[in-house]
Design a protein around this nucleic acid. Structure first.
Length: 303
DNA sequence: TGCCAGGGCTGGG
DNA sequence: CCCAGCCATGGC
């Protein structure tokens, strides 16, 4: 009996789909008419939140949904993760602000390339650059009627053949040579991204950091978002802000002390905790800046 | 308009 | 070890 279908329902609780797909860990999801459209493993897919869980629509019939469950990590019981968080005020506030936020399990190359692009870029811009990269160097994937043309994320092999100028034309700026070099290393087999799964966190981190343009932060993002190393704790400007304002409001600790803190304080799912802090800092309303009075127009533009 | 963005590398104390 | 300056680019 063939049970292939283009629709299914993943029954899962405590899953905030919008927050998860739009939380700066993946950069290709777009919301349209209340549903989220994206590409996973070269397949177009549409996801929408329902009271039962996540409704799924694909273009081609699917026999086995395990690739999707793996990407969404829908079998994780969120409560068992949250219960390992430290019981302090910042974590309570962060979890309360966005119950249901999850970590995805992405493709390593797409994740690595995307975060190499991410440095000193706003999330909106990262999305633009990744979109350009896909349009120009990705392969078209089948889509339903009316969804336009959608492209897969370009493989390392493909990017290894393009020029630095072509990458700069995707608004990559100074990151272009690094992304190109990484694509060539991966395509040539000098770095085997699949092999990293079998290594320890530290060993895998060391391999990633051999790439120019990949420091501790980007390596940790890939370890966390693509490989599922839950201890990995990326510290970007937002998480740094959270650490400083919420944990060390009096005196900012030096890098040494701060590093020790994040490695010891957040428990076995530190990376998950990090994602809650990140989301909390980015979405909470700005500090008490008085709301502009309706009548007070913004400073009259002098000529 | 200027500040800042899911940083990393280099060179100087 | 710690820090400043630099690297492109565009959002707000």
């Amino acid at each position: 009996m063939d049970s292939a279908a283009c629709r299914t329902l993943l029954s899962v609780r405590d899953y905030n789909l919008a927050a998860t797909l739009d939380s700066g860990q993946a950069f290709r999801w777009a919301e349209r008419n209340g549903a989220w459209e994206g590409v996973i493993d070269g397949r177009w897919i549409q996801l929408s939140q329902t009271s039962e869980g996540i409704a799924v629509q694909t273009c081609a019939p699917v026999h086995d949904w395990c690739w999707l469950e793996r990407y969404l990590q829908s079998d994780i019981v969120l409560g068992s993760v949250l219960s390992t968080f430290p019981d302090d005020q910042p974590m309570r506030a962060s979890v309360a602000a966005c119950r249901g936020l999850r970590l995805l399990r992405q493709d390593p190359w797409e994740c690595l390339a995307s975060f190499m692009i991410s440095s000193t870029k706003q999330i909106v811009q990262i999305r633009q650059i990744v979109a350009l990269l896909c349009e120009r160097f990705g392969a078209p994937v089948p889509t339903p009627e009316g969804c336009g043309t959608v492209f897969s994320f370009p493989t390392a092999e493909r990017l290894a053949t393009v020029s630095e100028a072509e990458l700069r034309a995707c608004k990559m700026g100074f990151r272009a040579p690094n992304v190109l070099a990484a694509a060539r290393e991966v395509a040539a087999g000098n770095i085997d991204l699949n092999r990293l799964r079998s290594l320890s966190v530290q060993e895998a981190r060391d391999v990633l950091m051999q790439l120019r343009g990949v420091g501790e932060k980007i390596a940790n993002c890939v370890l966390l978002f693509a490989y599922g190393f839950q201890q990995a704790f990326p510290v970007d400007v937002w998480v740094m802000k959270a650490l400083r304002e919420l944990y060390f409001p009096r005196r900012a600790p030096g890098p040494r002390r701060l590093r020790h803190f994040v490695e010891t304080h957040f428990g076995p799912n530190a990376g998950y905790a990090q994602q809650y802090l990140f989301h909390y800092m980015r979405t909470r309303q700005p500090r008490t800046r008085p709301a502009p009075h309706p009548a007070s127009t913004r400073r009259a533009r002098s000529r």
